[in-house]
Design a protein around this nucleic acid. Structure first.
Lengths: 239, 239
DNA sequence: TCACTGTCAATCGTCGACAATCGACAAATG
DNA sequence: CATTTGTCGATTGTCGACGATTGACAGTGA
C-alpha cells in the first residue's frame, strides 16, 4: 500500500553530490577535496562529509592519504585496463549461469533494452546511451543470479562511467555501438554459452581498447604525485 | 637504510582488533557491535571506532542498519556459495595471465609454498595451514599481475577465512588438503593454461562444497533478523 | 486475553572545538 | 649558491556533547 520512504541519510546525499561533481567534470582527477570546504558549502559539519568521502573511497572514486586528505582518483591507462580486465572476468564467468537461468521473459527484456540502445543511438543521445548500455550489462549480471557479482559490477560500472565521463563520448558512432550488441542477443537466443562468451569477449575487448586508447593519447589525468600535490596545492602561507 | 615507519592510524588498529575478535569467535555472527562500548573498551572516542566499523563494512565483515547500528555479518550458506563462486571466477580468469607471466623463479616459490603446506599438514598445524593455503592462492593472483584482482582476492580471503574460522577446521585431513595442490603445480610446470583452469576448478569446487556443506548442516549462524535483533538485543529498559 | 498506545532508556547521527601534523616558505648556515 | 633548519598557516584526526530516533516495556481499554 504505502511505500517505505527511506530518508536518504546525509552522507549518501553528500556522496551523490560529489559523485555528480566528478561526473560533470567539476572536480577533476587528482584534485584535492577538503573536508571543511565541502562541509561549509553543503551547510553541514565535517563528520558526514568525511563519511561520504570514505564511502566513495571504498568505491574507488576517491583516494586518501593519511594526514594529507582526500583526492579525486585519477586513473592512468594501466589501471583502467585492469578494471576492464576485471569486468571481462565477471561477465564471462556470469555467462554460464546466465544461459542456465535466463527465462523467455528475461530474453524479451534484454531484446527490448537493445532496441532502446538503438533508438538512443539514432537520435544521437549518447549520454543516455552510455547509461542504458551499462543497464543492459547489469541485466545480464542480474539474471546470472549471483548478487555478490552484481554488486561488484555496479561498483565497477560507477568507476568506469566516471572515467568515461572525462573522455566525453566513447564511441564515434552511437549507432554502431548499439548494433554491436546484436551478436550477444543472438547467442542468448540460441542459448549457446560458448558462443555467448566469445561474443562478450569481443564486445568488451572493443570497448576497452577504445577507451584505453583515448586515455593513452590524452595528456591529461597525470600520475598521482606525492608529496605536495601539484594541482591545487595548499594556499601559500602568508608572511 | 631506515625503513619508513608507518604509524598505523587508530581506525586501522581498531579494525584489526575487531577483525581478530571475529576470527577468534569472540564476536559471533549477528552479534551487535556498539560504537560507544568499543570506544570505552579501547580507550578512544567513538569517531575512530565508527570509521573502523565502516571500513569493515566496506569489506563485507560488518553490516550496518541506519539508525540501528552495526552487526557482525552472518553468512548463510547461499551467500557463502556466492562468494566462492566469485573466487572461482577470479582465479580461473587469472590462470591465463598467470601462465603467461610466470617466471621460473615464481614457479619455484610456488613449489616451495606447497611443500610448506605439506609440512604443516603432516605436523597437524591446521590453523597455519589455512593461512598458508590462502597465501599460495594469493601468490597466483600476484603473479597474474592485475592488482585490482589481487586486492579483491584479499578481501574475499578475509571474508572466507572469518567464515571458516567459525566452522573450525575445514578439512578432516590436512595432508590430503596439501596434496590437493599437486595437480595445480603440475599444470603450472607444463604451462598448460587449459589444464590449469581445469585443476583449479576442481580444487575450488571441492573446497567450496566442503565448507558449504558444513554450513548447511550447521544450525548456527541464523538468518539476519530484523527488527529487534534476537541475539543480544538491547538491554531491558528499567522502570 | 489480546491489541494498541504512551513512555523510556539506549544508541546513533551530527555538531563544534582542540591538538597534532603536514607542506610551503623564509632565514640561517656552510 | 646549495643545503639545512625553523616557523607558519592550513588541514586532518580525535574528542566530548547534544538532539533525534529506535525498540522494548508497561499500562490501558475492549
Amino acid at each position: 500500500m504505502f511505500r517505505v520512504l527511506e530518508q536518504a541519510d546525509l552522507p549518501s546525499r553528500i556522496a551523490d553530490q560529489v559523485l555528480q561533481a566528478i561526473g560533470d567534470g567539476l572536480l577533476r582527477p587528482g584534485e584535492r577535496v577538503t573536508e571543511a570546504r565541502l562541509a561549509t558549502q553543503m551547510g553541514t559539519s565535517r563528520a558526514p562529509v568525511r563519511e561520504a568521502l570514505r564511502l566513495l573511497e571504498s568505491q574507488g572514486l576517491i583516494v586518501s592519504h593519511p594526514r594529507r586528505g582526500f583526492f579525486v582518483k585519477s586513473y592512468n591507462a594501466d589501471e583502467l585496463a585492469e578494471t576492464y580486465d576485471l569486468r571481462q572476468c565477471l561477465e564471462l564467468h556470469n555467462a554460464e549461469a546466465l544461459v542456465a537461468r535466463m527465462s523467455d521473459a528475461d530474453l524479451q527484456r534484454l531484446e527490448a533494452q537493445v532496441e532502446l540502445l538503438k533508438t538512443l543511438g539514432t537520435e544521437g543521445r549518447s549520454q543516455e546511451q552510455v547509461v542504458e548500455d551499462y543497464a543492459f550489462h547489469r541485466m545480464l549480471c542480474e539474471i546470472g543470479g549471483n548478487s555478490r557479482i552484481l554488486r561488484l559490477f555496479d561498483q565497477i560500472a560507477t568507476e568506469l562511467r566516471s572515467g568515461i565521463a572525462l573522455v566525453g563520448r566513447i564511441y564515434d558512432d552511437p549507432v554502431e555501438l548499439a548494433r554491436s550488441h546484436d551478436p550477444i542477443i543472438d547467442a542468448l537466443r540460441q542459448r549457446d554459452t560458448e558462443r555467448l562468451r566469445e561474443e562478450l569477449r569481443e564486445h568488451l575487448r572493443d570497448a576497452s581498447t577504445h577507451v584505453i586508447d583515448i586515455y593513452r593519447k590524452w595528456p591529461g589525468t597525470p600520475q598521482d604525485v606525492l608529496p605536495g600535490h601539484p594541482l591545487e596545492g595548499r594556499p601559500k602561507a602568508g608572511p
